[in-house]
């Protein structure tokens, strides 16, 4: 039984708190882009994806590729809370010998479907997995979460062409459109807009949603399921640092270090 939307919202808040606790403990890590992605990850892992935490390498599972690999705190917290490994592992994030490396490493962490790190590379991987599935008559889906800053990378657009050309309708890419990157607004650095039009021109089916509305996210994934012969992009409008007022829409919270004081203040906002 899938959780209700209200239960999903509670899970998302718990993951947000985990993100803050683990990054306070590690003294580093990317908070802003993790918080913008939490609602999307929650719907994927608790409502949408066919997965089995007890069998992380189950052949017919839906796959997930975190192309915006710096959002690893959010993914690790989701995997731990979903039962892939002990929640206490979260406190080892970014530390020596941890199973939770700064960026996802499939050889160390149960539940990670692909090692990622260098920006702009996830969609190609998702496409390859989907192609193999098609060849083998498998019906699982492949989800790929991208950051908008990554869309500067040329490989993203090579992969966008490949997915459309091969009609990879099992690929569902998600654009975490928080409008921010490390150095500031994506539109000030090198403008991405009109980003939705770009994907449509590349022959993708695009669904635009509020990336913090559980119901809208659920509807978008259901729509993606029904599209045949084309890949789908869920264009999720999000807020960098979502849930913590002093972090919201502040590019410095891309990778700023938390202090104890700020942590307490942030946790109050997330109760």
């Amino acid at each position: 039984m899938s959780p209700t939307p209200n239960e999903l919202r509670d899970i998302a808040q718990m993951i947000r708190r985990d993100v803050l606790t683990m990054t306070l403990e590690s003294g580093s890590g990317h908070i802003g882009g993790s918080l913008s992605a939490v609602d999307l990850l929650t719907v994927l892992y608790w409502d949408r994806m066919r997965v089995n935490p007890e069998r992380p390498r189950w052949e017919d599972r839906d796959r997930f590729v975190l192309s915006k690999a710096h959002a690893s705190p959010a993914l690790y917290a989701a995997l731990a809370r979903r039962g892939y490994f002990d929640v206490r592992e979260l406190m080892t994030f970014r530390k020596l010998k941890s199973m939770l490396q700064g960026f996802p490493d499939m050889q160390r962490t149960p539940g990670i479907d692909a090692s990622v790190g260098s920006p702009g590379q996830g969609l190609s991987i998702a496409n390859g997995i989907a192609m193999a599935a098609k060849m083998d008559g498998k019906t699982f889906r492949v989800y790929c979460l991208m950051g908008d800053g990554e869309a500067h990378e040329g490989q993203v657009w090579e992969a966008a062409m490949t997915a459309a050309h091969h009609g990879l309708d099992r690929v569902c890419a998600i654009m975490d459109r928080n409008m921010m990157m490390g150095d500031g607004s994506t539109e000030d650095i090198v403008a991405l807009s009109p980003l939705v039009d770009k994907w449509r021109t590349f022959n993708w089916h695009v669904v635009e949603v509020d990336g913090h509305s559980i119901e809208q996210i659920q509807a978008a994934f259901a729509e993606a399921d029904s599209v045949k012969g084309r890949p789908t992009l869920v264009h999720a409008k999000t807020v960098k640092g979502k849930g913590v007022p002093f972090m919201e829409n502040k590019p410095e919270w891309h990778d700023r270090k938390l202090t104890e004081e700020l942590y307490e203040e942030a946790m109050k906002a997330l109760t």
Binding site: R63, D113, A114, Q121, G122, L123, S124, I125, A126, N127, G128, I129, A130, M131, A132, A133, M135, D136, V142, G154, Q155, E158, A159, M161, T162
Partner: peptide, 21 residues
């Protein structure tokens, strides 16, 4: 034939290999 997309080709290959090819 992936076209003149050598970077995408390597990433796609990674995905295919992840699925057992």
């Amino acid at each position: 034939d992936i076209g003149l997309c050598e970077q995408d080709m390597m990433g796609t290959a990674a995905g295919l290999a992840l699925a057992g090819k």
